[in-house]
C-alpha cells in the first residue's frame, strides 16, 4: 500500500516536471518567434532603405559624373557616336550634350 502511494506520488511529480519543462520550451519558442519577427521587420526596413540609397546614388547623371573618379580609365559613353580611333583623352573631351550655342548639326 505504502509502495503504491509512493509510486503514484513519484509518477505525478515526474509528470508535473515534464509538463513544466514542456511549458518552458514553448515559452522559449514563442519568445524566439517574437524576436525573429522583430529582426525580420528590421532587416526588411533596412533593405528598403538600402535600395533607396542605391537608387539615389545610381541616377544616370550621377553615374556619368562619378565614373572617371572611380577609375580614370572609365569614361561614360557619349551620347554621340565617336570615331573608332578616338583616344581616351579625346573621349573625355567629347561633349555630353550638343551645346545649342555651338550650333551642332548646322
Amino acid at each position: 500500500m505504502f509502495g503504491k502511494i509512493l509510486l503514484l506520488v513519484l509518477v505525478l511529480g515526474m509528470t508535473a516536471a515534464i509538463l513544466l519543462v514542456n511549458r518552458q520550451q514553448r515559452i522559449d519558442t514563442a519568445t524566439a518567434i517574437w524576436h525573429t519577427w522583430w529582426r525580420l521587420q528590421e532587416h526588411d526596413q533596412s533593405l528598403a532603405q538600402l535600395q533607396y540609397e542605391i537608387a539615389r546614388s545610381t541616377q544616370p547623371a550621377r553615374l556619368r559624373l562619378a565614373m572617371p573618379g572611380i577609375d580614370d580609365r572609365w569614361r561614360s559613353i557619349p551620347l554621340i557616336p565617336v570615331e573608332s580611333n578616338t583616344t581616351w583623352e579625346q573621349l573625355a573631351d567629347q561633349p555630353e550634350w550638343p551645346d545649342i550655342d555651338q550650333g551642332y548639326g548646322g
Binding site: R73, R75, I77, P81, V82, E83, S84, N85, T86, T87, W88, Q90, L91
Partner: peptide, 11 residues
C-alpha cells in the same frame, strides 16, 4: 560618312 558607333576606344 557618320562615324562608327563604338563602345571601346584606344587606351
Amino acid at each position: 560618312g557618320a562615324p562608327e558607333l563604338t563602345v571601346s576606344v584606344q587606351p
